[in-house]
Amino acid sequence: MASASSDVPAVELVGAHKRYGGVHALKAVDLAIRPGEVVAMLGPNGAGKTTAISLMLGLRQPTSGQVRLFGLDPTDRRARSRCGVMLQESGVPQVLRVRELLDLFRSYYPAPLPLERVIGLAGLEEKAGAQVRELSGGQRQRLYFALAVCGDPDCLFLDEPTVGMDIESRRAFLDTIARFARAGKTIVLTTHYLEEADQLAERVVVIDRGVVIADASPAAIKGQVAAKRVSFRTTTTLSADHLEGLPIGDLQIEDGRVQLLSGEPEVVLKEMFARGVDIAELEVVGADLEEAFVTLTRRAAAP
């Protein structure tokens, strides 16, 4: 039975596996992204993010399992016509001018945005007449963004969108994406910058070694790890005896300054006092998303 189109997920992976020869890049991934959701995919390099995006876009076929884009096969032109894509890896014709390339890409979509509006959205007014090869790295990223949005897509796929941008253009760019999100667009982005995910996404999917190890809001992921960062100064030379059996992770000791992550900082500190560790300049703060992320991937790595 066909259901109302708003119930159809924008993107859906069901038991998706992907193998490249002997490498199992994606393992039984189930993921449904609803229309209007803003989802950040996080994971270390080689975790399977790019493979997942490639499957969603129909650039690669799953070894087994199902992938749907707006309820259609991802290679279906009707599905593609509703998507805008910014792939970090892809090239772009070098000798066409910015305006020409955008004019060309607009012709691929049934209801494209006006050309001048696209140029304005990407902040490329001054470079509209320049050939692509003359653009700087950051300008090129903005061109990719313009190519992604020129068809007025319902769903945007952004693969590492701010790589190569300086802080200023990155901030402006993130604002633009946030505007698209508020306009009800579905956005799927991969990023290395965790604060980007924190700032933009309402949902974070953490992929590690081809498996989804967390799928929740940024706050929930931080809470799920519930890690606090504990740091203090000590004159005690810490030995294995001092630390044995304590619930800590990511321990770093440098010049008598100790930093660690723990879900139960009270227990850790109490034990350390009891074991005769002298503690000064104590600080306990909530971990940020990056630390949560490190803890999560490390936990998944543990046997």
Partner: peptide, 11 residues
């Protein structure tokens, strides 16, 4: 130049 990748992802 990975142009194949660029055009593949469009309609």
């Amino acid at each position: 130049g990975k142009l194949d990748l660029l055009f593949r992802a469009t309609p």
